[in-house]
């Protein structure tokens, strides 16, 4: 178990706040995404068209790791990226606007929800599995060459650990002692394929041994447990001692994408997972510790809801890009 008393109340409250914003954003997107897609679902229709991969339930990984990062540190994320972007401090309004395909978005509507780029916050994501891992190595290489104590974090799913870029990146980072933290979110499924049907070993953290680097297995979807493990991994990287691999057992409450029939998992699986919700858990801990009152907790949730509402409203009110803007930005 994580030692909550080793953390100051402000850090805990801050992590709660960020997780609450993420959860509210993702649950809001569930409804926003369905606007204009009823009664007949059409992926091309509605306010927000295209695929939508949401991360409700997976907040602890993003928040527990990013709590150790600052604006000089780089994060690369996969297709399911909202929680990482929010945890890294990406502007919520610009992110929402990008998801709505608006000109005020991070990429002027060019990228969309799987392709969010924020140069100030040093955040990027990709729709291609494993693609962020070599890029994180590159960011770390640059930090090392420039003599900075900056680190790079690459987030990815457990299915990615079977991709060539995973193994190549781990070896490269270990060989060159790059300040990278590889963080695997094990949400049990690569779309429909369970980990046991795709991966030859139970814990991907064990694979760290093949590359002579530390591997941290975090067996619970708990932000404090993630925070503690990441503290060590990030500190190690900042000290110039090289990369680490973390794997966190987390939960995906929603489908792989919105509209996923989810025939590959039992109907009651998610309901059971929700009983041990990581945000509720931290909220209870904060109250039990006397860090905050019941009223404070409600206020934190309301504050999160307000922030998300503002961001969604900003996205709604923003103009679309001009059609011919499509021809811009192939090159700078």
């Amino acid at each position: 178990m994580a030692k909550t008393n080793s953390l100051d109340a402000q850090t805990l409250i801050s992590m709660y706040r960020t997780m609450a914003i993420i959860r509210n954003f993702e649950e809001t997107m569930v409804n926003v995404y369905m606007e204009g897609k009823m009664p007949v679902f059409d992926i091309a229709g509605g306010t927000v068209p295209g695929e939508m991969h949401l991360a409700a339930g997976q907040e602890p990984v993003a928040v527990g790791v990013c709590a150790h990062l600052n604006d000089n540190d780089t994060v690369t994320a996969p297709h399911r990226a909202h929680h990482f972007a929010i945890a890294k401090g990406v502007d919520l309004k610009k992110m929402a606007a990008e998801i709505f395909g608006k000109d005020t978005g991070l990429g002027h509507g060019k990228g969309g929800h799987m392709h969010l780029f924020d140069q100030q916050k040093k955040f990027g994501c990709s729709g291609i599995i494993g693609a962020g891992m070599p890029v994180a190595c590159g960011a770390a290489l640059a930090a090392k060459k420039n003599g900075k104590d900056w680190v790079a974090v690459s987030f990815f799913g457990e299915g990615t650990a079977n991709q060539g870029s995973f193994h190549e990146s781990l070896n490269l980072a270990a060989l060159w002692k790059l300040p990278v933290i590889f963080v695997c979110e094990d949400n049990s499924y690569a779309i429909s394929v369970p980990k046991s049907k795709s991966t030859s070993i139970a814990n991907n953290a064990d694979r760290a041994a093949s590359y002579g680097i530390p591997g941290f297995e975090i067996a619970e979807n708990d932000v404090l447990a993630v925070y503690e493990a990441a503290r060590e991994a990030v500190a190690r990287a900042r000290r110039g001692e090289g990369p680490s691999l973390m794997e966190v057992k987390t939960y995906r409450y929603l489908g792989h994408f919105q509209g996923d029939p989810e025939l590959y998992r039992p109907k009651d699986e998610v309901a059971k997972l929700r009983e041990s919700d990581p945000i509720n858990k931290l909220g209870r801990q904060l109250i039990e510790q006397g860090a905050i009152s019941e009223g404070d907790l409600v206020a934190l949730d309301q504050e999160a809801a307000e922030k998300v509402k503002e961001a969604i409203e900003f996205a709604r009110q923003s103009p679309y890009p001009q059609p011919a803007d499509a021809l811009k930005h192939v090159f700078v």
Binding site: G111, H113, A326, V330
Partner: peptide
């Protein structure tokens, strides 16, 4: 498609 990656936003995608 006029030699651009496929843009996300609907008006731009329909344009190309």
């Amino acid at each position: 498609v006029p030699d651009v990656p496929i843009p996300y936003s609907r008006p731009m995608e329909q344009f190309v």
